[in-house]
């Protein structure tokens, strides 16, 4: 599904990603762990098409397409979703309108008619249940005044609505209470099929008890320095990052 080779990226001429190689196949869950500032969010932003980062070398092939040539909105319509570490507050844009616009755009791209308003609302209701959020929240402006945990849940709600092929979760677990963590994990697990894949960025082994990864990668100073199975996360929890330096 996704093949990253020798990816380097910088911002303001400062190199942050220094040669990333990563293969993700349909049906897999990959976890990325790594110390603060190692480049995890940069990698997810580059994959989602954030233009402030400059790709200086390498390639990313996504389902046979050269991903780096596509603008952010096309990547999204092609099935890439980024649950952001810091979701932006956008006062004045209601979640309903925003999601309808997003869904319509995606369906148009795929050659489908837009959902009727009633089908759309039905789908909203259904997906709200999956992530256990109420209409009280989804009737508000996008993330405006949401608590940290509500913002994260809202990301997963959007993911559930858009049914992406590749979901990148950037520290979605940070700032969640135990119940919310379980909800988010259930959301991911219930959306999981043999055709989609997840890239889960986290600092805590705890999340990986719920979302069990096939692979765990350690990102350090812009490079993947170690790859293992879920036991690698346990090892990190115990020893910290000193031993990999």
């Amino acid at each position: 599904m996704l093949s990253i080779k020798g990816l380097c990226a910088s911002i303001n001429n400062k190199e942050i990603l220094k040669g990333i190689d990563l293969e993700i196949k349909a049906g897999e869950i990959h976890a990325i762990m790594g110390p603060n500032g190692s480049g995890k969010s940069t990698l997810s932003s580059v994959l989602a098409g954030r233009e402030i980062f400059e790709v200086t070398a390498g390639e990313v092939i996504y389902n046979g397409k050269n991903l780096l040539e596509l603008p952010a909105e096309i990547r999204s319509r092609e099935g890439i979703f980024l649950a952001m570490q810091y979701p932006v507050e956008i006062p004045g844009v209601s979640i309903v309108n925003f999601l309808k616009a997003a869904m319509d755009a995606k369906r148009k791209h795929l050659g489908l008619d837009p959902l009727s308003p009633s089908d759309f609302l039905k789908l909203m209701k259904e997906k709200q249940k999956v992530v256990e959020i109420t209409s009280k929240l989804t009737n508000r402006s996008l993330n405006e005044g949401f608590s940290g945990g509500e913002k994260k849940k809202n990301e997963i709600f959007q993911m559930a609505m858009l049914e992406p092929k590749l979901s990148i979760l950037d520290e979605t677990d940070s700032g969640l209470d135990i119940d919310a963590l379980r909800v988010v994990a259930n959301g991911v697990n219930s959306l999981r099929t043999k055709d989609n894949a997840f890239l889960v960025i986290t600092h805590y082994q705890r999340l990986l008890d719920y979302i069990v990864p096939d692979f765990v990668h350690i990102l350090y100073d812009g490079k993947i320095v170690k790859t293992g199975d879920k036991s690698l996360a346990l090892e990190l929890e115990e020893k910290g990052y000193d031993w990999i330096k």
Binding site: R50, E51, P71, E73, S76, F98, A102, L162
Partner: peptide, 10 residues
């Protein structure tokens, strides 16, 4: 970027 990352064009 947030809006575009959800498929909404510029």
């Amino acid at each position: 970027f947030y809006l575009r990352s959800r498929g909404i064009d510029k």
